[in-house]
């Protein structure tokens, strides 16, 4: 059976203008991600992975090239049209959770639905459903500051899920967590993947990247490899052995 494309980046370049000079953050990148995949985009700091994430997350648009999300060209969209795409098709999970500190977790989770003009009753119902899924339904009235880092990240995952998006985009989702809590969050992401969600992990950490089934490596603004997890692990193993002599 032919797999259905969710994301297609064709010759995508992003150039920033600093004074008179131009800096290419991404250079003619081609990436295709299919529905139901769990993909890691990995690269060091300054490699251009964040720019790819911003473009995939409809937070930014490419300078040239095309970006298709669910078959729709979003590379030329602006302002409110991009906001609509973010609201309907993408669920963000941020490294720093990015919860609103003065709103309880139920309201935080319901934010994407609020901007989608979903009525209050329906919003609360769906927010409670996803909070239950991440095991925080009993703490729905708590403020984010009353929760641990791991719990806050689970709230952030619940918020990413509530709008039933096509894509979950996780930017260094375990970056601010200890190893035990990181494991819990990764297990939750695996569970979501098993349920059919498409997940993209953006990370600099190879061990986190190896949680995905497919790993896209980015360096100097271009894709340098696109492998499955088995190959990626072998590559790491080979690199480690050669560096140890």
């Amino acid at each position: 059976m032919e797999r259905e494309k969710l994301i297609e980046l064709i010759d995508v370049s992003k150039i920033y203008h600093v004074g008179d000079s131009e800096i290419a953050a991404n250079n003619e990148i081609d990436i295709t991600i299919y529905k139901g995949e769990m993909v890691a985009i990995v690269g060091k700091s300054g490699s251009g992975k964040s720019t790819v994430m911003n473009i995939i997350g409809a937070l930014d648009t490419p300078t040239s090239g095309q970006y298709f999300l669910e078959g729709r060209d979003v590379s030329k969209l602006k302002g409110d049209d991009l906001a609509e795409i973010r609201n309907k098709l993408i669920g963000f999970i941020f490294q720093q959770y990015n919860l609103l500190p003065k709103q309880n977790i139920l309201d935080n989770v319901g934010l994407p639905l609020m901007y989608a003009r979903v009525g209050e009753r329906e919003r609360k119902k769906r927010s409670m459903e996803v909070l239950k899924k991440v095991g925080l339904d009993k703490k729905y009235l708590n403020l984010p500051t009353q929760l641990s880092g791991g719990q806050q990240q689970r709230v952030s995952i619940a918020r990413a899920l509530v709008g039933r998006p096509s894509l979950i985009l996780a930017d260094e989702p375990t970056g601010a967590l200890d190893s035990k809590t990181s494991r819990e969050v990764l297990d939750l992401l695996h569970q979501l993947h098993k349920e059919g969600n498409t997940i993209i992990l953006i990370t600099h950490d190879s061990s986190i990247a190896s949680e995905a089934e497919r790993i896209i490596k980015i360096a100097d603004g271009t894709v340098i490899s696109d492998t499955d997890v088995k190959e990626f692990k072998n590559e790491i193993k080979t690199n480690t052995e050669s560096s140890m002599g």
Binding site: A83, F92, N98
Partner: peptide
């Protein structure tokens, strides 16, 4: 500013 960024990333439009 960060709050505005969060709201925008979650789909808040200009008019919101």
């Amino acid at each position: 500013t960060r709050e505005i960024g969060i709201r925008k990333s979650l789909g808040a439009k200009h008019k919101d």
